[in-house]
C-alpha cells in the first residue's frame, strides 16, 4: 500500500530533473530568441530610430544636463588628469538609469512592444 520511499524520491528527482531540463531548454531558446530580435532591430533600423528618439527625449527633459553636472562633480573629485573612460562609465551608467524619467521610459517600452508585435504578426 505504502509506496516505497525510494520510489517516491526517484519520481521527485525525476520531476526536478525534468523541470531543470525544461528550464534549460527554455533559457537556450530565450537566448536564441534575444539574438534573433536584436538582429531584427538592427536589420530594420529600428534600433537607430529608438536611439535617436530616446536621445531627443532625454535632452528635452534635461537628463543630459543633469548627467553632465554629475559628470563634472566626478571629474572634480578625481582630478581632470586622472579621469578614465571606465571611471566615467562606472559612475554614469547607474546614475543615467536612475535619472531617466518614467514617462520617457514608458513611451520607449510602448514603442518596443509595438515593434515586437509587428515582428510576431509577420
Amino acid at each position: 500500500m505504502i509506496e516505497p520511499v525510494c520510489c517516491v524520491a526517484d519520481r521527485r528527482r525525476e520531476k526536478v530533473h525534468q523541470n531543470i531540463k525544461m528550464d534549460l531548454s527554455w533559457k537556450v531558446k530565450d537566448v536564441q530568441m534575444r539574438a534573433v530580435i536584436n538582429q531584427k532591430l538592427i536589420e530594420t533600423g529600428e534600433k537607430e530610430r529608438l536611439k535617436e528618439l530616446l536621445r531627443n527625449k532625454l535632452i528635452e527633459c534635461g537628463w543630459r544636463d543633469q548627467l553632465k553636472a554629475h559628470c563634472k562633480d566626478v571629474v572634480r573629485r578625481k582630478g581632470i588628469e586622472h579621469v578614465t573612460v571606465d571611471d566615467l562609465v562606472a559612475e554614469l551608467t547607474p546614475k543615467g538609469r536612475e535619472l531617466v524619467p518614467d514617462d520617457v521610459k514608458k513611451e520607449l517600452l510602448q514603442r518596443i512592444k509595438a515593434f515586437l508585435a509587428q515582428q510576431a504578426s509577420i
Binding site: R34, K47, L54, V89, L92, L109
Partner: peptide, 23 residues
C-alpha cells in the same frame, strides 16, 4: 523582461556615447 532589456540596451549605448563625449 524583453522590452526592458532592449530599453536598457539602448540607454546603455546612449550613456556610453555620452561618456566618450565627456571624456
Amino acid at each position: 523582461g524583453l522590452e526592458e532589456d532592449i530599453f536598457a540596451d539602448v540607454l546603455q549605448e546612449l550613456t556610453l556615447g555620452f561618456c566618450f563625449e565627456i571624456h
